[in-house]
Amino acid sequence: MKELVIISGKGGTGKTSVSAALASLSESTVIADCDVDAADLHLVLSPAVMESGIFESGKLASIDKSKCVSCGRCLELCRFEAVKNNDGIFSIEETSCEGCGVCVHFCPVNAIMFDERKCGEWYISKSRFGTVSHARLFAGAENSGKLVSLVRKKAKEKTSEENKSFIITDGPPGIGCPVIASITGADAVLIVTEPTLSGEHDLERIASLIKHFRIPFFVCVNRFDVNEEITSRVEKKTLELGGIVAGKIPYSKIFTQSQIRALTVMESDCVEIKNIIKNIWEKICHRMMTI
């Protein structure tokens, strides 16, 4: 079983469109959408949900107003600006609560409840390209990386159950906890970047994170013709950092047009883009089999 995780550092580089295209090319595959904070892969894969469950993580404090004596101890101790004092009525803002339990422990009248926090839902679905493991984080919930791990774990279970050989994972943007959770233990990472100063800046940050975990990585430059000078700098940087340039994709409206039709670009009639992506996929597969 091999797992390729597709990430981007910066958002909006076309990571999800590329993930969907690669997933459509991979024959024996399970697909994982680990961008749980803004999961979009399902908009192209149109998966039919077969199994689902609630995802709980951490705890949430809440004040029982009937017991609260408005002493303000919780407000004084909370480091996360989660306690609000509205004319002596104390309450906890759910989206700010870190779930540390300090207020619960030190409340002199035991007026603070501490319950499991429901953070999202996970799904196992069927799509035209195979089984999809995906999830939805509830609005404003903490993305600790635990849901990302759950999605990957379920993808792995399905891969062995169905005797598949590959997992294509659409990872989260950024370099924080969810990204770390999405790449640890993966066989290779594909970074989809763009030739802009921001893309270049973020590529260095994400590549040093990947190097920290000693995972082989590929780089694909999307919309490379928007700035060919930066594209060549990105290619050079990739080699310097020990990565492999998987390919370059030109600017094309076909990405948005396919998205609007809920299709991958591989299902469009744009031969040029399709060939480029096919080559990228073959290059990645070839290298991954020798890793």
């Binding site: 908009l43 192209v44 600006e81 989206t95 404003g140 903490e142 943007p173 924080g176 998205q259």
Partner: peptide, 28 residues
């Protein structure tokens, strides 16, 4: 603000008089 809707975004928008959401006219 950071992208997304999880705690970094919530922390960044908190306390603002109002928020401007920048989007693009695509399904994503």
């Amino acid at each position: 603000c950071p992208p997304g809707t999880s705690c970094p975004m919530v922390t960044a928008v908190g306390g603002a008089d109002y928020v401007i959401l920048v989007t693009e006219p695509t399904p994503f």
